[in-house]
Amino acid sequence: MQKLRQAFLFYLLPILVLIFFALIMNSTSFFQKSFRNDDHFSTYVVELEEMIQIQDWEAAQSSLSKMHTAWKQISPRLQLAAEKDKLEELDENLARLSALVSCQDQSSALSELYAAANNWRNISR
């Protein structure tokens, strides 16, 4: 029993702690997934792209607002494992996208949306 306790304390516990740390540090992909009804970020990206393509600016505005809400839910979860700069870049993408959708500038809005989608994919890399 004593040997078992020692083996747990000196070998198993440190290994479990290290595995736990590794999981925390690689949790970005997991936390990018949706856990609520209003944090389907990837779905809103596709939705917004369609709305910009057909120039339905009211629907685009609504999708963008959903994207903002989703991002507010997701970004705190990613802070532990992701780069701060990448999170800030996506923040900036969304801010610029808001302005472009308001101005109804299709080509610039699409380019900004693709940049946002690209940054979203890169967060976990």
């Binding site: 740390f21 590794a22 540090m25 690689n26 532990l80 494992a81 992701a82 780069e83 701060k84 700069d85």
Partner: peptide
């Protein structure tokens, strides 16, 4: 250093 991920350092 929050400008980079923790994992590569670890």
């Amino acid at each position: 250093d929050l400008s980079s991920r923790a994992w590569p350092h670890w």
